[in-house]
Every structure is written in C-alpha cells, then in structure tokens.
C-alpha cells in the first residue's frame, strides 16, 4: 500500500496573508480508503519554535467524523476558510520564531493518524535588525 498523505492547498501560491484576510484552503487525503478514516481535524494555528518551550494556540478548529452525515467524505477535496486575526504576526527572531500553519490531522482505526501541515505567513514578516552586541543572558530559577 502506498504511503498515506494529506495534501493541503492554499488559495494564494505566495502563502502570504495580512491580518483580516480570508484564508481559503482545500485539502484531501491520498493513499487511503474512506473506510479507514475515523475522523478528521482541521486547525489554523500558530506555534513558537526556538529556545523556549513551545507555545501553541488554535485560531480555528473543526472536527468531523467519517460517519457524520453533515460532512463530506474526507477523502474528497474539502474546502475550508477563515478570517485571520490581527496578531501574532509571523516572526523569525533570534531565539523565538512564530509560525502559522494549516494542520490537518486524519485519525485512522487502531490509533494511527496521518498529519499534513501547510505553513503560511501572516503579516509582512517582521525581521530582527542587525545583531546587537550585547550577548544573550540566561537566568535560572
């Protein structure tokens, strides 16, 4: 059997959005039969990367099961849209990065799951200025 994969397509090839923009995306699952899928979760979220513990917050969350008559077959292309918030903007810093993404998690039977993720940029990507001479400091408690 071929490897299962979640394909996520955003409406903008550049994947750059401004606060208040509508993000539209389409996703579908490859390499699976419909009967293997228990449920699907779709999230628009940001998370941090870098030195610190990861912070994560979900802006939009949808969950639907394969048996749910109100939803479509998750193996067929699904549409999803949301209005993006004003903050936090995407950011690449020295010790902190803030990354936005659309994440689709497909739950299969017997506890298995397949995850797909498509990153996008919120805002005009503030960047840190030229390096500051002062060294980083670490304090412990």
């Amino acid at each position: 059997m071929s490897e299962a994969a979640v394909i996520i397509r955003l409406d903008r090839p550049s994947r750059v959005y401004e606060p208040g923009d509508v993000l539209s995306c389409e996703f579908f699952v490859e390499g699976l039969h419909a009967c293997m899928v228990k449920s699907v979760e779709v999230s628009v979220l940001w998370h941090t990367q870098g030195k610190g513990e990861e912070d994560l917050a979900v802006h939009q969350f949808h969950q639907f099961s394969a048996e749910d008559a109100s939803c479509c077959d998750p193996l067929n292309p699904q549409q999803f849209r949301t209005v993006l918030p004003n903050s936090p903007l995407s950011y690449r810093g020295r010790i902190i990065d803030i990354r936005w993404c659309v994440r689709v998690r497909v739950f299969l039977h017997r506890g298995r799951e397949v995850v797909g993720e498509q990153a996008f940029q919120l805002g005009s990507s503030p960047r840190v200025a030229a390096p500051v001479p002062a060294a980083a400091t670490v304090s412990a408690s």
Binding site: G52, T137, S141
Partner: peptide, 21 residues
C-alpha cells in the same frame, strides 16, 4: 527583547536576547 523560558531538569531557565537597540 526576546525572552524564552524552558525547563532543564527541575530548573526553569529564561534566556533573553536583545534584538533591537
């Protein structure tokens, strides 16, 4: 300034870094 807090064993550490001055 960026501040990142993480745990190392039983300690909680905060690393700080000035990015604009």
């Amino acid at each position: 300034q960026e501040d990142a807090t993480y745990r190392q064993g039983t300690n909680t550490r905060t690393e700080s870094c000035e990015v604009v001055r």
